[in-house]
Every structure is written in C-alpha cells, then in structure tokens.
Design a binder for these strands. Sequence first.
DNA 1: TTCATATGTCATGTT
DNA 2: AGAACATGACATATG
Length: 742
Amino acid sequence: MLSLKKYLTEGLLQFTILLSLIGVRVDVDTYLTSQLPPLREIILGPSSAYTQTQFHNLRNTLDGYGIHPKSIDLDNYFTARRLLSQVRALDRFQVPTTEVNAWLVHRDPEGSVSGTQPSSGLTLESSSGLQDVTGPDNGVRESETEQGFSEDLEDLGAVAPPVSGDLTKEDIDLIDILWRQDIDLGAGREVFDYSQRQKEQDVDKELQDGGEQDPWAGEGAEALARNLLVDGETGESFPAQFPADISSITEAVPSESEPPVLQNNLLSPLLTGTESPFDLEQQWQDLMSIMEMQAMEVNTSASEILYNAPPGDPLSTNYSLAPNTPINQNVSLHQASLGGCSQDFSLFSPEVESLPVAGSSTLLPLVPSNSTSLNSTFGSTNLAGFFFPPQLNGTANDTAGPELPDPLGGLLDEAMLDEISLMDLAIEEGFNPVQASQLEEEFDSDSGLSLDSSHSPSSLSSSDGSSSSSSSSSSSSSSASSSASSSFSEEGAVGYSSDSETLDLEEAEGAVGYQPEYSKFCRMSYQDPSQLSCLPYLEHVGHNHTYNMAPSALDSADLPPPSALKKGSKEKQADFLDKQMSRDEHRARAMKIPFTNDKIINLPVEEFNELLSKYQLSEAQLSLIRDIRRRGKNKMAAQNCRKRKLDTILNLERDVEDLQRDKARLLREKVEFLRSLRQMKQKVQSLYQEVFGRLRDENGRPYSPSQYALQYAGDGSVLLIPRTMADQQARRQERKPKDRRK
DNA sequence: TTCATATGTCATGTT
DNA sequence: AGAACATGACATATG
C-alpha cells in the first residue's frame, strides 16, 4: 500500500508538472488533437505512467537508491506499458493522410493552376493545421521546418538507396521493417533498429555537414522556395516535400528501367521473357501490403483510382485516367498545373522510355510528349504521387484539390512534428550546449516548471548529488560511492547504520551530555559526516535551532559543567559544543539523563526499554526521554521526507528531460518512417507500372489500364482483373475502414 | 526589516 | 495496540 500511495501522490505531482510542461505546446496539441491520436498519445499518453516508470526506474537503476523497493513490480508494469504504448504509437502513423495534405498545401505557392484553387477545399483540420504551420507569425519556424525537411531529404538520400527496379537487400529490409511495423504491434525492435541506424546516419551527416551550423535553421528562404516548388510539383502524399527528393528520385528512375520480374504464378499474363532469378513474390507481398494498408487510409487510394474506374462509372468520370485521350490531357495538365498529372506521367515516362520491352509502347499514350523535360523538373517526385495520378489526370486541373480526401492531415503531421521536435531533436542528438540551454529555457518558461538545475550549478541538481541523492545519475555524481552508501541508509533505517560508531564515541566521552558535533550533522544531513563537513553549501545544516527550549533547561545547560571549569581551549571547545547541542540534548543534560540522545533516539525498542530498565529514572526523566525519542525520530523522518521531496523533484526534472528526448526521438523516427514509406510507395508504383506494361493479351497487345488492373490477392499473388471488379473491391475496402472509424 | 531557506516540531495518518 | 514512519503545517533560526 505504501508504494501504491506513493504512486498516487507522486503521480499527482508529476502529472501536474507534466501537464504544465505539455502546456508549453498546447498550440501544437490543438492541431494534434483531432487528427492524430497516435502522435498525441506519443506526447501525452505515456505521461503519467511513463513518468512514474521513469521515476522509479531511475531510482532503481542509477545507484541502487530506491525509495520504495517494494514497487519494483509496479515499475515493471509501467515500463512495459510505456514501451508498449510507444510501439503502438509508432504503429499508428497514418501516412496516407499526410500525403494529400502536403500536396495541396504546396501547390498554392507553386502558382500553378492549383494555386487558384482555394484552400477551402481542404478539410478544416488541415487548413487550420496549415495555418498553424505556415502562418505569418511562424515565419521563422516555417523556414526552419522547411530546412529541416530538406535536411531530412538529404538524410533520406544518404539512408535509402536510390529507387531501382530490382529490390536490393536494403530495400527488402526496409520493406520488411515498414510492413511489420504496420501489421505487428510487437515489431518495435526492427523499427527501432532501423530508425536507430537512420538516426546515426543522420547524426553523422550532420556532423559532416558542419556542426556549427544549426541544422534546423539557415537557408530558410531558399530552402522554402525550393521546397514549395517541389512539393507542389510532386503532389506527393507526404507533407514534407523535400527538394532533395527530386534529385534522389531522378537518379533512381533510370535504374528502374531494369526490368523487374514477376514469376508466372503471380501474373499469368505477364511477360515471362524477362524473368529474373530473384523471387519477388515476397517483395510483392510486402509492397502490396503496404499499398493496401495505405489504400485503406486514403479514400481515393492509389492504383484503384488510377486505373480502376471503368468508363461510365461515376467515379471514373472524375478520376479515370481516360486513356483514350491521354496525351492531350497529359500535355494540358503539365502545362497547366504539373500537379498530379505531371507526376503520373513523369513517373511513367522514365520507365517507359528506358524500357527495352514492348511494354513501353503500351504505356506510351500515358507518356507526355515532353516527358523528358518534365522529368528533369518533376519526374522524380512524381513517383511519390503514384497513388493519385488518375485523379489528377482527370480532374487535377480544376478540381483535384477539393476532391482529395483529408488533404492536410499529413501535413499537419509533419509540420506539427517538426515544430514540436526540432528543439527536442537538438537536445537529443546534438547536445549542443547553446541549443540545449536555449531549448531548456524555452521548456522551462513554457512549462512553468523550473529546470534551473541545468543552469545554475548551485541548484537542486548539485545539492542533489552532494546530498547523496541516489536519483541523480551516478555518472555525473562526483561522489558515487558516497551517494550509494548514504542513499540506502536514508531510505531504510536512517541513522541506524552509524549508531554503533557514534554511540561508542559518545560513551567514550561520557554517558551524559552532548554528542560529537559531527554526529549531529550526520543525522541532519543524512550524509557521511566527513563529506558533509567538506561541503560548504551544507553549512546551513549546522543551524542550531534552540527555540522551544525550556528556560530552565537552557539555563542549566548553559552552566558550564563542573569538570569544564578548567580554563583554556577545552572550555572554549565545550562552549562551542554546547552551542551545537540541540534543545533535547540540553534538556537531557539538564535532566541528567544517563545516556546519549543518540541512544535514546536510535536504539531499537527492545534495547531502548532494556536501557531504561537499567536506570532508576524519575517520571520527568522518562517523559523527557520519550519525548526526545519521539522528536528525534520525527526529526529524521522529516529530513527523510524533505529529502524524498527533493529527489522527487529532481527525478521529475529528469523525467521531463527524458520525455522530451523520447518525444523527439519518436517524432524523428516517425519522420523517417514516413520517408521510407514514401519511398516504398514510389517503388511499388513503379513496379506496378512496369509489370502492367509488360502484360500482353492473347494477341500480344498490351492491356489497357482503363480496362484492367492488377489485383493483389491476400495470398500474395497478383492477378489481372477487369477494372470493374477492381473498383468494386476497392470500394468495399474503402468502406470498411470508414465504418470502423465511425 | 523583510525575505528565502533550512530545520525542528507537532498533529495526524499510514504501515 | 503500539512502534515506526510519512507528511503537512507551523515555528524558529539564519543569512
């Protein structure tokens, strides 16, 4: 019960502080709330449990100091909960929503046709989020964000290999990771390993780029302009449109010309001439799984929209690719708004052009005449939008924006993400002193919780370490041994451990009277006397609070003992010691108690009673002795209590820092996952195009994308089915998640 | 003198 | 039931 109660009481305090801390980012939360429960949970969810866990875990692990060793089980419980919640939070990243948002958002600055489209088409959440992110008051932040994304892009380029037709082992691993992350709640390990790798690479890259430069600030305007342009062009599903994407993808595109191979069992109509030695079935499965999951998120998801809409179908009227007039539409689209169309076509064009197979001819209608030039500018990014090409082709010119579902969700994700985490990231990774301090200041001021310890050396943290606060990290603690030794004595039987020594000394000096000065200090400070005496900032410990002392006792105590009448240093020393004595010690002396207060206070009950029985004591003496014992114990208890309070505060401080660090790490991981997911989608799209382009009917003619589509079966096989069927299935799939959300 | 801080003490509740 | 412990509130000392 003690531990439980502690959890409750401390939990309240921690929760309050955490709330205040979180209050710092309330603005962020506002656009977190509705749309991003997972991210919100990352930030808010683990708070109470996590804090508790951290608090106790720290205590348990740092130097063995545990206020409540009994609470180990609870610690485990909270730890498990925290980890699970983190893993779950990672699992809930909603990529697709992000895509649409970014697309629309960045189209406006582009000034293309989409620019005329009012943002009203965006959902309320999205628009608000966009405003929050790119609002006029956030100009600096915006630039930072853009810069951060651009950097991310660079990271991306470094981390992820160029997109290629053949999946490299890294690609497969990436797919695996992402896939499992989505479908397996317990797959945190792979995810984290991967993210860790990415993070390390990111750090390395940042270091190489030059540590003195703030990664999140800098070429704001330029990067912003670049970003916006690119984003608008890509129609990329992800909010973070990194300029680097263009280059990276462009580089990757030619390699995609390499014919990817599907086995016959996967696609019967598929051309078999280019079968590769690799078994891509599993890869296909993975890719399709990702695709399907994403498709569930986006109402007008990918390939279904792209090709599924049959002629005459209400949907098709708006979204169908309209293969009959592909070139015209393509051209117009490109010229008008490069939005989704350009993406599609540019997406196809590189492949088709480079494809040695007849399949290129199949897709030729899809390829814009100016595909090459387009590719140079937008081609690479177009891949990212492979899910939306159909819509764009059919309607992008005028209505693409409004039609897109959940347009800004993703952008919110990213923007909020950046905004929240930029400084956290700095704390986590850079540990740049200046940045860290600045960040801390911000957090401090915002949270209302003073984290001064990091700023002022004489603050709590220092005192913590000196006063044997076990919770303080042992590594930083100057006296690890002292803290370790003292910490437990505090927790358990305070003062008992040293009783024997002090008692011996006192007895040697004389039964009645005062304790050695250091013994008092020791009691008061919970510290090793030697250490304590060496600590100047603990001088206050020597306060002699003699109030409440009975006048008579004081008088009698002040009287120099007969033996002390000797003149000289001894007398002075005795006076000094007298002054150091506590009230109870004076009283005991006045009442001629035949044993030390230390014994009175610290002896176990049995021994204490035994001791009392040895002497013939008056009632007044017995009463005083009991009072001394009671007060002495309470004094220690009070000291312990205060010490605990201090430790709690310090632990909370550290918990807050840890939480901030965790939050930053999770956000960064999310960014990385989103990036990887985008790459996967690009790859899937390119593979889809390539495979579909190689399909031939009985007469050796290519299948029309408007009439047929590739269907991914649950067992991993890929089927070529009529588009009408595909549409029906797609609609069925779309409804399920919708209903579920309701 | 006033204020912040440290400490001791009491009352009360919990273990 | 009593001892030990925890803690809020208050008082006092100190710088």
